[in-house]
């Protein structure tokens, strides 16, 4: 059997299995466990309706938790063992991390990323959303700015390698330096600032995301509150910061935290641009350095990242839920 056919057959089996499960379990619930008969009719229908959501959702919930919780527990367990997974070392991997200057650099850089990228992306997104709002060609501009969202991080990194290229005939930065008579340099080797050159790439990508969401939110602001502000004498800048932004604060927070979570997970950009050299390491790329070489260490890093993401995640979800209300 060709692999293609195999795939199709498996999909069919899976699908019919699901449908069969829903049908049979529903049948059992309605006809056998709580049959709507005679005097018990109303009560049994209500009971069946209480049970049904659980019945239908349980398999999915079980599978999801299995694939979410097991890796977390498994990773944590693995991080308590040595490199070869032969010896229990307790929290030694975590201790080693703390004493490793590479880890501290990564943590520090990651902190910078979390500080800069979400703020810059959200701000730029908001700016673009506002500026393009009433423009006839605003949608074209928005499409162009949204485009980078469709590019993979590695692809984006490759594009920006050209921007940062040392050869003045390729790299725009060195081309500019060349025209004013400065000798070429490698931006990615410039200590400290090279981090920001990498962040620019993610900001470039995430601005589109922020723009789309915030643009919709801006459109949702009741027009008459803005007109009332106009009559109250507010200038465009005051209307933006005192009437519009406060009204979409919830959405701004959701965008901000969503990008923060992305930032804590991104490793591709650093990996593709510098490989973590020149002090540009961040936690995910630091983790990748150890993966397959020292899984104990790598899983410890993974766990640290998870601990960092978790509170942001919870905050994000609670914000999003508030928005939906």
């Amino acid at each position: 059997m060709s692999p293609l056919l195999q795939g199709v057959v498996m999909i069919l089996i899976g699908l019919s299995g699901c449908i069969g499960y829903f049908y049979v379990s529903n049948f059992v619930l309605d006809k056998i466990i709580f049959p709507p008969k005679l005097d018990d009719q109303g009560r049994n229908i209500n009971r069946a309706n209480l049970v049904r959501p659980w019945l239908f959702l349980l398999p999915a919930l079980l599978l999801l938790s299995l694939y979410l919780i097991y890796p977390v527990v498994g990773s944590f367990y693995r991080s308590l063992f040595n490199r070869a997974n032969t010896e229990f070392v307790g929290l030694a991997n975590y201790g080693a991390l703390w004493n490793d200057s590479g880890f501290r650099t990564a943590l520090y850089n990651n902190f910078l990323w979390v500080l800069v990228v979400p703020a810059a992306s959200t701000f730029m997104g908001l700016l673009v959303a506002q500026l393009t709002d009433k423009l006839s060609w605003g949608n074209v501009a928005k499409s162009l700015i949204f485009m980078p969202m469709a590019i993979s991080f590695v692809g984006a990194s490759l594009i920006w390698r050209f921007v940062y290229a040392v050869d003045p005939n390729i790299g725009i930065i060195n081309a500019l330096r060349d025209t004013v008579g400065l000798s070429p340099m490698d931006p990615l080797q410039l200590p400290f600032w090279n981090n920001f050159f990498l962040m620019v790439i993610l900001v470039w990508i995430q601005t589109g995301f922020a723009m789309v969401i915030l643009s919709a939110a801006l459109r949702g602001i009741p027009e008459d509150t803005i007109e009332a502000a106009v009559i109250d004498g507010a200038k465009p800048r005051q209307i933006f910061f005192r009437i519009k932004v406060p009204q979409i604060k919830g959405t701004i927070m959701v965008v901000w935290t969503t990008i923060t979570i992305t930032v804590l997970k991104v490793f591709d950009i650093v990996y593709a641009m510098t490989g973590g050299n020149f002090k540009t390491e961040i936690l995910p790329s630091y983790m990748m350095d150890y993966m397959f070489r020292d899984d104990g260490r790598a899983t410890a890093v993974a766990f640290v990242i998870m601990i960092l993401v978790l509170p942001v995640m919870i905050w994000n979800i609670s914000n999003a839920r508030k928005e939906m209300r």
Binding site: P222, D224, T225, E227, A228, V230, I231, D232, I243, Q247
Partner: peptide
């Protein structure tokens, strides 16, 4: 509008 010496009450109240 702000310099016309007018104030407006909207149907939808238009409160901030």
């Amino acid at each position: 509008p702000a310099q016309r010496g007018i104030a407006m009450v909207f149907q939808s109240y238009a409160l901030y």
